[in-house]
Simulated assay, not measured.
Amino acid sequence: MQRISLAHGEGGEVANELIQKVFIKSFGHSKHTQFDSAILSLREQTIAVTTDSFVVNPLFFPGGNIGKLAIAGTVNDLAVSGAIPYVLTAGFIIEEGFPIKSLKDIVKTMAEEAERAGVTIVAGDTKVVEKGSADGLFINTTGIGIVQEKRLQPELIQEGDSVLISGTIGDHGVAILSARQELGLLTNVQSDCASLTGIIHELLEEVKGVRIMRDPTRGGLATTLVELCEDFRFSIELDEDLIPVRKDVQGACDILGYDPLYLANEGKVVIIVDSNEEQKALALLQSYEIGKNAKVIGKVASCEDESGKLLLKTIVGTTKRLNRLAGPLLPRIC
């Protein structure tokens, strides 16, 4: 068979063949997969758990596909929480008629990204739905990470702390637009989709003043920082002139009326760090290929703001308040 049929979801011989030839071929078969649950020995560990679902459209885009996105998105959520990603589960909802070759390509990419991130996929599930009931393929992942010790210290955030971003913003959003052919031949921007476990682990090992981290995915950099300001009740002032944006990303945004501050990123981390550790953190980020465009983009302006505000000092010298993304910008972005 070259395409998924309803029989692939019935649990019989055809389903077993799919599991053996697609999933186990890429993910491997270990003692974890011999039962209806993965049996893990964590001893007396503090763990972090995250779950996410991926419905990106299209499934393949410049710089990645839904499989790479599913692994990177999940391990990044664990890493920015101060955890070392350990194991993942993966659930697949597949539409009848979906090409098996495409599924193999996606699963192979997942296995490769999991290896890069240092995680194992220990459990999974496959469901097949009738044609028209889904849009090709949806993936759900759950990740577990080990928190070795308290590394993040948001309670120590103070006025003057530095805000860093690990690279250019808006790349993933523009790559998706390009894949949807809304940009034609205007850009060849690649998605920044990538696992950040290595760079974040070293940052937490080497820089002692890291207050908090987030990955600015849906809603972009602005929405992520607004949430931090509101949750922890402090204000940030960003310098628009310092925020790294690729020229072709900015050009695409200018043509289509988007703001790169609100476009999704899938391989970036925003960090608040003690100003005394700013240069050490920046140098470490820039020592990695995925962090070569890292910048200091602002400061914590006040820790006495109960409402929490994100302010932007514009290139013309004025200051304006940024809010969360209001309404849909780019649906099916991840």
Rank of each mutant, 00 (worst) to 15 (best):
P216F: 08
Q286C: 07
C193A: 12
L59G: 05
K150N: 05
V122Y: 04
C193N: 15
P62F: 04
K313C: 04
N276G: 14
S41W: 14
P62W: 02
L263Q: 00
T168I: 03
V270Q: 00
T126A: 10
S178V: 05
E306A: 13
S5H: 01
E130L: 15
L42Q: 03
L78Y: 02
S302N: 03
N265D: 12
V210A: 08
I200M: 06
Q34C: 09
P244Q: 05
S191H: 01
A194K: 10
V249L: 00
L183E: 03
E17F: 07
I121P: 01
K208H: 11
D135K: 13
L152R: 07
K127T: 15
I199H: 05
Q250D: 12
L221C: 06
D192Y: 07
T224H: 01
I236D: 00
D77N: 11
R246C: 06
D259W: 07
V128Q: 15
I39T: 10
S30P: 09
N57K: 15
S5G: 07
E13F: 11
G67E: 02
V207M: 13
Q20R: 10
I106K: 02
A123V: 10
D171K: 08
I4T: 02
V22C: 06
L325G: 03
I71R: 04
Q181N: 11
R116T: 08
I199Y: 04
L204K: 11
V207W: 08
S102G: 09
G97E: 09
D305S: 02
E205I: 07
I297L: 07
F234P: 02
I93E: 12
V119R: 03
D77H: 13
L69R: 14
I139S: 04
D77V: 09
G28R: 11
D274A: 13
E13H: 12
K31I: 08
Q45L: 14
P154L: 00
A175D: 02
V129P: 10
L69D: 08
E304Q: 15
R3H: 10
V87Y: 09
P216I: 09
E205G: 13
V273K: 12
G67Y: 01
G184V: 05
Q158Y: 12
F27M: 10
N65F: 11
E96R: 08
D192R: 07
L103C: 03
H32A: 10
C229M: 02
V128C: 12
V119I: 03
A123S: 11
G143H: 08
A90M: 14
I236C: 03
I100S: 09
F232R: 03
I272A: 01
I47S: 09
I236T: 00
K127F: 06
L325Y: 04
E182A: 13
A264S: 12
D135Q: 09
L322K: 06
I315C: 13
R116D: 05
G298C: 07
V107L: 08
R233N: 07
G73W: 09
E10H: 10
T51F: 15
L311Y: 00
G298V: 01
N140Y: 12
G67P: 00
D241E: 12
Q286T: 07
E202I: 10
C229G: 02
N140K: 08
C334E: 14
G327P: 04
